[in-house]
Design a protein around this nucleic acid. Structure first.
Lengths: 351, 351
DNA sequence: CTGAAAGCGCTTACAG
DNA sequence: CTGAAAGCGCTTACAG
């Protein structure tokens, strides 16, 4: 009896635990692999009944296309890179969670790439990472995101990216703006509303855009209400706990102490706590403290710290979502995330 | 003039910013692509001078093989997955840093996969992740690493993995053991050496192996020196700040207070601080506190917290390094990381 | 030690 | 709306 083509059925799947391929799906559903490919890629050029038949088969056999084969043919992987240069663990983890929220069930995965933006070769390191992996896109997290040379390099090699920053510094389609200025202004208005008039500020490094924004936002909100902060009440520190300690020592050692301190992040607020505790200055009775980040630290400290919350997870989700949107999707305004003040036990009216 | 094969030179590279391929390298160096492939894969079956000539060319043109093409042919990607189910940001970030230390310049990248081991479908989620991406291997971080069903699934689908846990629970080649028991014992001996005799213990959940190890290590070290902890001095909590508060309230409310408390992690120690501060109990004068983790929180609290340090970055580095070792590398004993006590300001002899 | 052929699982470019 | 051919950049299996 001559060999005859048998009718195909799911029973004709590859055996031995091997996963189905596009060829199996095409053969079993009686269409060409090109049609299956169109369905995978959501092309509209497929008849509805064909699509439904093939999709049903895909579900039945648990088919999912091989990202490496697709990537090889597309000349681009299904990986999103997250590039960051930031020591704050909770911030990074929240950003990752947010990105993964956006990537879930999209076929994309998240590849992490911490770096050191102060080391000379770091831009080349990112370039190699992007080109070698043929990344689909990368999210730039502060402070790396503030480095124009990094963004320029990515633009030059044709890599799509999104940039997270406190203020817009690129085309809207690439920006997620976090408006740190507004959060700092809210803190200022809150302290004024409590009745504080002798207020001090411990800022992060002036080289960080986030720090400039928080400082300006705070100072200008006070000025708008008629309170000019003297230079001696503004101390630049380094966003670290230790630098917060040093700054607080300057502020709290003299006899003429401020009644409230706003710090550019929670780490430095913890430094203020340490100095106040050691000196027997009671928080919030003798000193109100307001931080920025609303990190876990804020609620672990005693008394719990009033702080400006950043919606980091939303930020990460937005930045990743923008990267995997279809090419032509219009983007009229930059994505926007707003911080807000969370009031706890470290602040009260001055006595 | 008839077409003649021109001598090839780097000038004959593809233009237009396209990267060199294995074909370019083969053509320009006058060997077959198979030989180039052998060099990429460090096969010994290449003559030394051939290897050196080709490697020089690769460096000159900046060639690096396409991981997607290699992955497609190998039927396995160059991605390492990190699977975790742990809310402690610093721990996760350190683990990632460690893994990336091991992966640097190896051609492998790290793909992160947080999950919720209490949700019913989570094992299937990991399975899809592994199979879809054809992962080269995955690192299992506590507490997910303690789930035998997860490990069984990975073994069943033939995915290599390493398991990080406080005690060996798999074949040596797959284990990175962190010996939490020893760290807790060191804390116990330290408190005894200070002269404490009324010691209390706030444990993590009994469902966590790490918690059992820390508890047993602490209790048994005390017993070995003749101190039996009464049941009333051992309280099970949930590894969280809030659960630490609740446990500390029980321990510190009566008139008969312990002079020292050891907690299963730093979060719960922060809870003890809160209760002590609120009640006006002075740390360390009236109460010594020792935590476990040596998280950033430990040095941010006031007074700074004596705590058991885990070398998380080393742990992550080891777990990742084991995954990318050549297949046959012998592994006689499980990799081992040991914790040690870091003494700060929260502990002193009882008054 | 080296190489020519076939194949990994997809997509692109072209044709109908 | 659908399909047959060629190709993405590598490796495997086989041959010498």
């Amino acid at each position: 009896m001559p060999a005859r083509k048998k009718p195909e059925s799911p029973a004709a799947l590859p055996t031995g635990g091997k996963a189905a391929t596009i060829n199996d799906i095409a053969r079993l559903s009686g269409v060409s692999k090109k049609t299956v490919s169109r369905i995978i890629n959501h092309s509209p050029l497929v008849r509805k009944d064909t699509r439904e038949k093939v999709e049903a088969l895909m579900r039945e056999v648990g088919y999912s296309p091989d990202p490496m084969a697709r990537g090889l043919a597309f000349r681009r992987s299904f990986l999103i890179g997250m590039v960051y240069d930031n020591p704050t663990a909770q911030y990074i983890v929240n950003m990752q969670y947010g990105a993964l929220d956006a990537l879930r069930d999209s076929g994309f995965e998240l590849v992490v790439h911490p770096c050191d933006s102060r080391s000379p070769g770091y831009i080349d390191g990112v370039r190699r990472f992007v080109q070698q992996q043929k990344l689909h896109g990368v999210m730039l997290v502060p402070r790396a995101s503030e480095d124009q040379a990094l963004a320029d390099m990515l633009a030059e090699i044709g890599c799509r990216y999104t940039r997270i920053a406190s203020v817009s510094m690129d085309t809207p389609a690439r920006m997620v703006v976090t408006h740190d200025r507004d959060g700092a202004a809210e803190a200022a208005e809150y302290l004024l509303s409590l009745g504080h008039t002798d207020i001090a500020l411990i800022t992060g490094p002036a080289a960080y855009r986030s720090s400039i924004e928080r400082t300006d936002g705070f100072v200008q909100a006070l000025a708008k209400r008629g309170l000019e902060l003297p230079k001696s009440r503004i101390i630049e520190a380094g966003y670290t706990f230790e630098s917060g300690v040093v700054a607080a020592e300057k502020l709290l050692s003299g006899k003429h102490r401020p009644t409230a301190i706003f710090t550019g992040n929670d780490e430095m607020a913890a430094g203020v706590y340490k100095v106040a505790m050691r000196a027997g200055i009671s928080i919030p009775r003798q000193l109100s403290v307001v931080g920025f980040d609303d990190s876990p630290l804020a609620s672990r400290l005693w008394p719990s710290l009033t702080s400006v919350r950043r919606n980091t997870r939303d930020t990460g989700r937005t930045a990743a979502a923008m990267l995997i949107q279809p090419e032509g999707t219009p983007m009229l305004a930059a994505a926007s995330i707003r911080p807000h003040l969370v009031i706890r036990d470290s602040s009260q009216p001055p006595e």
